[in-house]
């Protein structure tokens, strides 16, 4: 029972981190970045390839590398599409996503690359009769620290304030002096850092990485950002958390019928969106006045 709850919380935290990464970029440039999955994948590849250097160095390389790739996406593709329609951006991000998947295939091969990252995370801790996995505790801790850190950055720093302003009205933010490239660059860097954290948790669970490593969680996290209310950062994190916990709980309760987990998940998603089309946290908390 305790393990079920911890699993649900850690899944929730993991999906919350993924959804926040997507939500940050969506907020400032109305871009649904499908290539977020390939950021998660590069994080995992870097971890596995460099793990012999020791975990701290490996993690540093993965975080830095993922953030750099995120910035590279922005500079090489999205920056050139500033004035494009959201649909064009969407297609472009599809393109980046598929391009990177093929690139990973060329560099790392199409088959899964395996490696042991932090094997201690799969161990268990015993409390009398109940045992819980270390992995779920570490994931929950990591999610709390990162979500807390992001909250502080967004709510309490000047750059965070500028990101919030740009997310709600970029044109006006620029008129006040908010530098668009700086704000968008920051959003990409942070989404890269969050992707690397997700990569770390996922790769310790799975023990291997392949070119499509990040696709699944990205689609589900996207569902989370939509449920949370596109455009709201708390909404994204919360929506991702809701999707993650729901998947985890469905998995445990359905037992042998867990092949139906996603069926039930999407039934629930549709119900939520029918009841609250704007998402759980609607971006416009206050109606605008004339």
């Amino acid at each position: 029972m305790i393990q079920t709850i911890l699993d649900a919380l850690s899944y929730g935290g993991l999906y919350g981190l993924a959804a926040l990464g997507i939500g940050l970029v969506f907020g400032v440039m109305r871009l649904v970045n499908f290539a977020h999955g390939e950021l998660i994948a590069i994080g995992a590849y870097l971890l596995i390839v460099t793990i012999d250097l020791g975990l701290p160095i490996s993690i540093s390389i993965a975080v830095t590398g993922t953030a750099i790739l995120a910035l590279l996406m922005e500079f090489s593709v999205f920056k050139r599409l500033r004035l494009a329609e959201p649909s064009v951006l969407l297609i472009a991000s599809f393109g980046v996503s598929v391009f990177l998947q093929r690139l990973y295939e060329v560099i790392f091969g199409a088959l899964p690359l395996s490696g042991q990252i932090a094997p201690w995370m799969t161990g268990v801790i015993e409390f009398g009769d109940t045992t819980i996995t270390r992995g779920s505790l570490v994931t929950i801790g990591l999610a709390l620290v990162l979500l807390g850190g992001m909250w502080f950055f967004i709510e309490k720093t000047t750059l965070g304030l500028q990101i919030r302003a740009a997310s709600s009205d970029f044109q006006t933010a620029r008129l006040l002096g908010v530098r668009s490239n700086r704000v968008i660059g920051a959003a990409f860097v942070f989404s890269g850092v969050l992707a690397a954290a997700v990569a770390f948790v996922l790769v310790t669970q799975r023990g291997s990485v392949d070119p499509l490593f990040g696709v699944n969680i990205t689609i589900l996290a996207l569902v989370g950002t939509v449920i949370g209310g596109l455009g709201s950062l708390q909404g994204a994190a919360l929506g991702g958390f809701a999707v993650g916990t729901t998947i985890s709980l469905l998995n445990s309760f359905l037992g042998n019928y867990r092949i139906y987990t996603y069926t039930w998940l999407f039934i629930l998603v549709i119900i939520v969106l029918l009841v609250r089309p704007g998402g759980l946290i609607s971006n416009k908390a206050v109606k605008e006045r004339v």
């Binding site: 000047t158 304030l161 500028q162 919030r164 302003a165 709600s168 009205d169 044109q171 006006t172 933010a173 008129l175 006040l176 002096g177 908010v178 971006n283 416009k284 908390a285 206050v286 605008e288």
Partner: peptide, 19 residues
Amino acid sequence: AIFTDLTVNENLRLGLTGR
């Protein structure tokens, strides 16, 4: 074009960006 989701003070702080 004020930022309705932000506080009055945060709106004013944003104005400082252009100083």
